[in-house]
């Protein structure tokens, strides 16, 4: 599903974020991405949904070479990828329902479809009763669930989550992880970048360690260790 060949990324200010990364993530896999801050985890994810282009090497997502993708096709790539951030990135002046429906509306989905699918995904994430609230009235865990709802409403084949539990207490972190595992169970390829060692150890999934922009470890059913 995701392949990286000798991928390096050097930013215009000279910072080297990734160095010769080779990576294969299969369809439906659950992968933890760990490493110290600044190791290149976020950059690696941004390459996958083509917010960045590699300085050298190739990134292939679902058979599409992202550096050869024309600008007008980028939106369609992104519709097949859900993204969840630590800082939520919700629109505070819109309701929970509108925040989630937004992702469908921009794809020109028919109104009846938007209504039905938004309701369904909100119910799935236990947010049905909060659909008229604004993000400011929600707890951290609820906000993160709204983000997940927005990320999965287009039925993406890949879900990228960058520190999804970074702002949450341990109980809520576990709850979010269960939700992500459930989504992965339905066939969505899942990448979770995290610093939460307890969760990584508990889930027993594939763990890829990144240090200084290089892959330092890649273990199936691994534990939190990137040395």
């Amino acid at each position: 599903m995701i392949q990286m060949y000798n991928v390096s990324k050097v930013f215009s200010n000279g910072v080297e974020a990734l160095n010769n990364v080779n990576l294969h993530v299969g369809k439906g896999e659950f992968v933890f991405l760990i490493g110290p801050s600044g190791a290149g985890k976020t950059t690696l994810m941004r390459l996958i949904f083509r917010e960045e282009l590699p300085s050298s090497g190739h990134v292939i997502v679902d058979g599409r070479n992202i550096e050869r993708l024309s600008a007008c096709k980028v939106p369609y790539l992104r519709r097949s990828i859900g993204v969840v951030f630590q800082d939520f990135r919700l629109l505070d002046n819109r309701t929970v329902f509108e925040n989630v429906a937004f992702a469908l509306r921009v794809t020109n989905a028919p109104a009846a479809d938007v209504e039905k699918r938004t309701r369904r995904v909100l119910d799935m994430l236990g947010l049905g009763h909060k659909k008229s609230f604004t993000p400011l009235q929600l707890s951290g865990g609820e906000k993160q669930r709204v983000c997940i709802a927005r990320a999965v409403i287009n039925n993406p084949s890949i879900l990228l989550t960058d520190e999804p539990t970074g702002n949450l207490d341990p109980d809520m972190s576990l709850e979010i992880m269960d939700i992500l595992a459930e989504i992965n169970g339905k066939g969505t390829t899942l990448i979770v970048a995290t610093h939460n060692s307890q969760l990584v150890n508990k889930m027993g999934k594939r763990v890829i360690g990144l240090v200084n922009g290089e892959v330092s470890s890649d273990r199936p059913k691994g534990v939190y260790s990137y040395s």
Binding site: F49, C72, P75, L91, N108, N154
Partner: peptide
């Protein structure tokens, strides 16, 4: 700008 960045994230076309 936040709205625009989210729109791009969820796959809105430039003209949209």
């Amino acid at each position: 700008r936040t709205e625009i960045s989210i729109m791009k994230l969820v796959g809105a076309t430039n003209w949209f």
